[in-house]
Amino acid sequence: MLNGQPIAVQETGEKMLVELYRRYAGDYPKFFKMDTLCRLGFVAAELLLKGESVDAVVMANRSASIKNDTDYMATITDGNYYPSPALFVYTLPNIVTGEIAIRHHIQGETSFYILDSYEELEPIVKSQMADCTSPAAILAGWCECNGKNEFYAKLQIIWNN
């Protein structure tokens, strides 16, 4: 959904993220190196930030980078010790906010919180907004990924004027 309107897609799961990337971005090959959490946040931000600019990114979820963490762990199990550098770099959930900031040239704060619920994010965003000295916009939301086909994102732009 974008601004309450459904977006037609052919694929499901992570393939849907690739489909949306190709339709709405397509010019950022690094997308294919990202883990699913980053792909999710990246695509959601692409959809939302068309023609918009924001000053900061504040996101949260409950499971951190668990999906990628377990993928990475599988590369360092006994008898199969080939730790993947490409997976290792995504073993922190705040990488997604950094990827979005790089893509959209956002030079304000980026932060990622591990919380029990979306409601807990609201006071954090308000506090963040109070720190802004001029009219500002924050990309804020929930970005959760528990598997290649099990994820949820809800992002919004919050203005302080």
Partner: peptide, 13 residues
Amino acid sequence: SIDALELIMLMDR
């Protein structure tokens, strides 16, 4: 540079 590390791992693996 991350890709370089992946290639090193690929050569080993």
